[in-house]
Design a protein around this nucleic acid. Structure first.
Length: 322
RNA sequence: CGCGGGGUAGAGCAGUGGCAGCUCGUCAGGCUCAUAACCUGAAGGUCGUUGGUUCGAAUCCAACCCCCGCAA
């Protein structure tokens, strides 16, 4: 037994974005862990003006006085990080670089990753989005050992979380981030004190998801081929990026034409419409789009037309009445 | 100099040389058992900024600022 309060574990944290920040914070204020260093990706150009910006984790770590290191996918630099920090434990959340095996094997208590799915389902970069797209009713948090393969390591603990009807990638992600930050310290403590036996994944049941599945290109709504239920899920999965979109066709029956439209919030409405799929119309103070199912339309609760700002349904109608 | 759309009342928009408008919201009153409904009235603007053209500019010209979509 090791009393972590008396002997905090020297830990390296690997991460990049705001999710990693929440996880890092919870470990950093947890007396059982001593964050000796943070490894993150190099500063990247961001936004329309391509300003060189540090990752969220880097900003946060520097604020907390934690040393920051960039490995830049360079094997030698991983070795340097080990020499520099001499970690007993590595914790990883949303890092995004392939990490060499010797680095993972170095710490006494190994390298632990937090993944947002019930493994072995949804291995890969975008498990939340894919679970929503597939219409899954639940997903979860897998806390696992890192291995050379992608998300193939042995499982320490899995927590399940329901996917709500209105859940977007963002809302669900926020819940999972918060919950995982709450539980991670205790799971690590149990692991270090050998109260947990890792379980192998059944790789025959594995499924995968890729970053390229979530892109501007794949966020385009195809009214002629996609089922309305799928479109509604697509809208929720693409929040806050890349946002589901389509170009309103040249169609006299549609109130908007030849414009690119992004959808932020929609709901399915039972209503008979014989308009061709993708036609935008207004009925009873509601903004609707016909789908390939004649008895189902999609109601647009929040939308954005190119060149304009995001507006809700009511505001859109106010302006349209001109 | 990457491409394009835009900036007009608190919000969303119309108005392309001649009195500053529409829908919603806000405020006051009315109707109603009641209401997000309906009726009457009111407040609310330096038309992004600066300069130019003109008898006269929200409108035409020039420069700049800001917002948004695409691309990266």
């Amino acid at each position: 037994m090791r009393d972590l309060i008396k002997q905090p574990v020297n830990t390296i944290f690997l991460g990049t974005n705001w999710e990693s920040v929440t996880t890092l914070h919870s470990l950093n204020k947890d007396a059982r862990f001593n964050i000796v260093g943070v490894i993150t990706t190099p500063d990247k150009p961001v936004g329309r003006k391509q300003i060189l910006t540090p990752s969220k984790v880097k900003e946060s770590a520097l604020d907390s006085g934690i040393e920051v290191f960039h490995t830049e996918k360079d094997v030698d630099r991983y070795q340097k990080a080990l020499d520099l920090f001499k970690p007993e434990l590595i914790v990883c959340k949303a890092f995004g670089e392939i990490v060499p095996e010797f680095f993972l094997e170095y710490p006494k208590y190994k390298a632990i990753n937090v993944h947002f799915s019930i493994l072995p389902k949804y291995r890969g970069a975008v498990p939340i989005q894919k679970a929503i797209l597939d219409g899954e009713k639940e997903t979860g948090i897998s806390i696992m050992l890192m291995s050379a393969g992608m998300d193939e390591g042995e499982i320490l603990k899995i927590f399940k979380e329901p996917i709500l009807e209105n859940d977007t990638n963002l809302s669900l992600r926020e819940r999972l981030v918060k919950k995982s930050a709450d539980i991670l310290g205790d799971v690590l403590d149990d692991w270090i004190n050998q109260k947990i036996t890792p379980t192998k994944q059944d790789s025959s049941k594995a499924s995968y998801c890729w970053q390229k599945d979530i892109s501007k290109e794949n966020a385009e709504i195809k009214w002629d081929s996609m089922e309305p239920e799928y479109i509604e899920r697509l809208v929720r999965a693409m929040i806050p990026w890349p946002i589901a979109w389509f170009t309103a066709k040249h169609n006299p029956e549609s109130i908007i034409q030849d414009k690119r439209i992004q959808l932020f919030k929609t709901e399915l409405i039972n209503e008979i419409s014989h308009l061709q799929p993708g036609t935008i119309y207004i009925n009873q103070q509601r903004v609707l789009i016909s789908t390939k199912q004649k008895n189902t339309s999609l109601r647009l609760l929040k939308l954005q037309i190119e060149g304009k700002k995001e507006t809700d349904e009511k505001t859109f109608i106010n302006g349209f009445l001109n």
